[in-house]
Computed example of a mutant assay.
Amino acid sequence: MSPLQSVKFWLVGHAGLAKDALHVHVGLLLFVGSALIFRWPVRSWKPWAVALAGALAGEMWDLRDSLVYHTRIALWANFHDVWNTILWPSLLVLLARTTALFGKHQRSR
């Protein structure tokens, strides 16, 4: 088992989170964290891209582990994980771009 898989199983076991919930939390952490660190507005595509890149990198690592450790590859499960990771960042960007919920409504650049 790779170090990434070990960390994921440890988090699931010790944080009381389901694997799907872990993906949701990671997506929000990447989205909000990158927006705060780099001072990007929530309506920008940049924090969303960070969350998407994190989701895709994690699933690429999972696919690599499946090849290395000869476990079943389930592409639908990988898609499901990306979906869980990127859903809330996508909705937050959409809300920020179309409503005044996050401040003055402006067109994104």
Score class of each variant (00 low, 15 high):
Met60Val: 13
Trp61His: 11
Thr71Ala: 08
Phe31Tyr: 06
Asp20Phe: 14
Val42Ile: 12
Ala55Asp: 00
Leu17Ile: 06
Ala57Thr: 14
Trp40Met: 10
Phe31Val: 01
His105Arg: 13
Trp76His: 10
Trp61Ile: 09
Trp10Ile: 05
Val32Glu: 04
Ala77Ile: 10
Met1Glu: 06
Val24Leu: 13
Ala74Arg: 08
Arg109Ala: 14
Leu95Arg: 01
Pro89Met: 07
Asn78Lys: 05
Trp61Thr: 14
Leu94Lys: 05
Trp76Glu: 13
Val12Asp: 04
Leu94Gly: 15
Arg109Phe: 12
Gly54Asn: 01
Lys19Ser: 00
Val12Lys: 05
Ala15Leu: 08
Ser90Thr: 12
His105Met: 07
Val24Met: 11
Gln106Ile: 12
Ser2Ile: 01
Leu87Trp: 02
Arg39Cys: 09
Trp48Gln: 03
Thr99Trp: 00
Ala49Trp: 13
Ser108Cys: 14
Lys46Arg: 15
Asp65Glu: 08
Val12Thr: 08
Val93Cys: 04
Leu22Cys: 02
Leu92Pro: 08
Gly58Ile: 02
Leu17Asp: 02
Ser2Ala: 07
Leu29Gly: 14
His23Thr: 05
Met1Val: 12
Leu63Gly: 15
His14Phe: 03
Ala49Tyr: 09
Gly27His: 05
Lys46Trp: 15
Ala74Glu: 15
Gly103Val: 09
Gly103Ser: 08
Asn78Glu: 08
Leu101Ala: 11
Leu22Met: 09
Gly58Glu: 04
Val93Lys: 01
Val26Ser: 03
Gly33Met: 04
Gly58Tyr: 02
Val42Asp: 02
Leu91Ile: 02
Val26Phe: 04
Thr99Gly: 13
Thr98Tyr: 13
Gln106Asn: 09
Leu94Glu: 14
Ala35Arg: 02
Trp76Ser: 09
Ala35Asp: 10
Leu36Asp: 06
Asp20Asn: 13
Ser90His: 04
Trp61Pro: 12
Pro89Ile: 02
Gln5Val: 00
Ala55Glu: 00
Leu63Pro: 13
Asp65Asn: 07
Arg64Val: 14
His80Gly: 03
Arg39Trp: 14
Val93Ser: 02
Val50Ile: 13
Phe31Arg: 00
Met1Ala: 08
Ala53Tyr: 09
Ala100Val: 07
Arg72His: 11
Leu94His: 12
Ala57Glu: 09
Phe102His: 05
Pro89Lys: 03
Val7Asn: 01
Leu75Thr: 08
Leu4Ser: 04
Arg39Glu: 15
